[in-house]
């Protein structure tokens, strides 16, 4: 979208808009949905055994990976479903839900 001097966005008309509800890739990254959350998972680096269960089970992409290792939670996108805390093995208990 181009923005003229007055700052108002000019949106394309139906003749120039890409057909079939097509957008560029990865737009969900810019759409922050963390505010939907009631409880948040808190990750404890000391306890984490890097089993990756939280990462593979997260229905969004809210478990942050750095160099192939879990390194925290992306609160811009985590909706607080608690699946990561539930899947975190009891012997580790590295993810706990907090209000």
């Amino acid at each position: 979208m181009t923005k003229p001097d007055n700052g108002q966005e000019i949106k394309p008309g139906w003749k120039t808009l890409p057909e079939g509800d097509v957008l560029e890739a990865g737009t969900a990254a810019e759409f922050k949905t963390g505010s939907w959350r009631l409880e948040k998972p808190v990750w404890d680096e000391e306890k984490c055994i890097q089993c990756m269960f939280c990462w593979i089970n997260c229905p969004d992409a809210a478990i942050i990976l750095k160099d192939g290792k879990v390194s925290g939670v992306n609160y811009d996108h985590c909706k607080g479903c608690g699946i990561c805390a539930k899947e975190c093995p009891p012997k580790a208990s590295a993810l706990k839900m907090e209000k």
């Binding site: 949106k11 808009l17 509800d21 097509v22 957008l23 560029e24 990865g26 737009t27 969900a28």
Partner: peptide, 13 residues
């Protein structure tokens, strides 16, 4: 050539 298909499309599109 990744793209998004079928995203929410409200009053503006």
């Amino acid at each position: 050539n990744p793209y998004t298909l079928g995203a929410v499309d409200l009053q503006d599109y």
